[in-house]
Design a binder for these strands. Sequence first.
DNA 1: ATTACTTTTGCAACCAAGTTGCATTAAGTA
DNA 2: TACTTAATGCAACTTGGTTGCAAAAGTAAT
Lengths: 125, 125
Amino acid sequence: MGVIRKTKSVETLLAIFENNKDAVSAVQLIDLLKEKMNKTTIYRILERLQNDGIVHSFMDKDGLKWYATCHGCSAKQHIDIHPHFQCQNCGKVDCLSVDIKIPMIPNRQINFSQVLLIGKCESCL
Amino acid sequence: MGVIRKTKSVETLLAIFENNKDAVSAVQLIDLLKEKMNKTTIYRILERLQNDGIVHSFMDKDGLKWYATCHGCSAKQHIDIHPHFQCQNCGKVDCLSVDIKIPMIPNRQINFSQVLLIGKCESCL
DNA sequence: ATTACTTTTGCAACCAAGTTGCATTAAGTA
DNA sequence: TACTTAATGCAACTTGGTTGCAAAAGTAAT
Ligand SMILES: [Mn+2]
Ligand SMILES: [Mn+2]
Ligand SMILES: [Zn+2]
Ligand SMILES: [Zn+2]
């Protein structure tokens, strides 16, 4: 069960994801919105947006949670699966629209994969 | 700077990695060794072993840190880079010796990658 | 507009993983 | 054995994230 009421806080978060094609971490959002809403609210809205297929989440190399807009997903299924890139210089994270081939692994059933590429972004090169 | 003195605690941890080809999480080690040594000691030894190229570490899907034996690495360089597998049923994690092809990404320099495959292990299928 | 109902929020307290500072212990060495 | 310094234990702390509960605010019907 996702978003049911379009509250001010929900609108604020939706606007952030609309205008931003990069990923954004929970920590960044908490800092950015610390005057506008409580961190508990942020975590709870993010969870609802994820359940609705509006955003997806993933962990970065330090175990912090990041969020980004989904494309073509719904409450029924998350189909927008892709690798992510993190710049080890400026910390920026973004979604990559490339396809990484995951080979078959004998004796194991792979349900999904999490790929994080780490290096330097365009502006830090 | 890594391990300088072969203490009892260091030997204990080394023995665990020797007899275990699976990965093991910091949390598991803390629980396993709670009668033998302090959790701070465990974290500090793991860091030293990693600096010596004896073990490598990575994050699982929940942001917990795991460790496993390195093959062919040294204090100079970690060359044993490979994907990891986590069973979503029993939680077991292990190192995969398969090669995943990472494509070139335009305008970015990829230094290394972190690949986690999630599914069911042999005994949970 | 008022009411009634239910979701959403804020707040404070909590939790778990991991880190830090510092006094004490114990390897390594001569 | 004595000396030096790496390693450890312990308590306190930090950080990211969660929970319970009362108060506030959407939504829809009246
Ligand atoms: Mn993404
Ligand atoms: Mn490994
Ligand atoms: Zn950058
Ligand atoms: Zn399993």
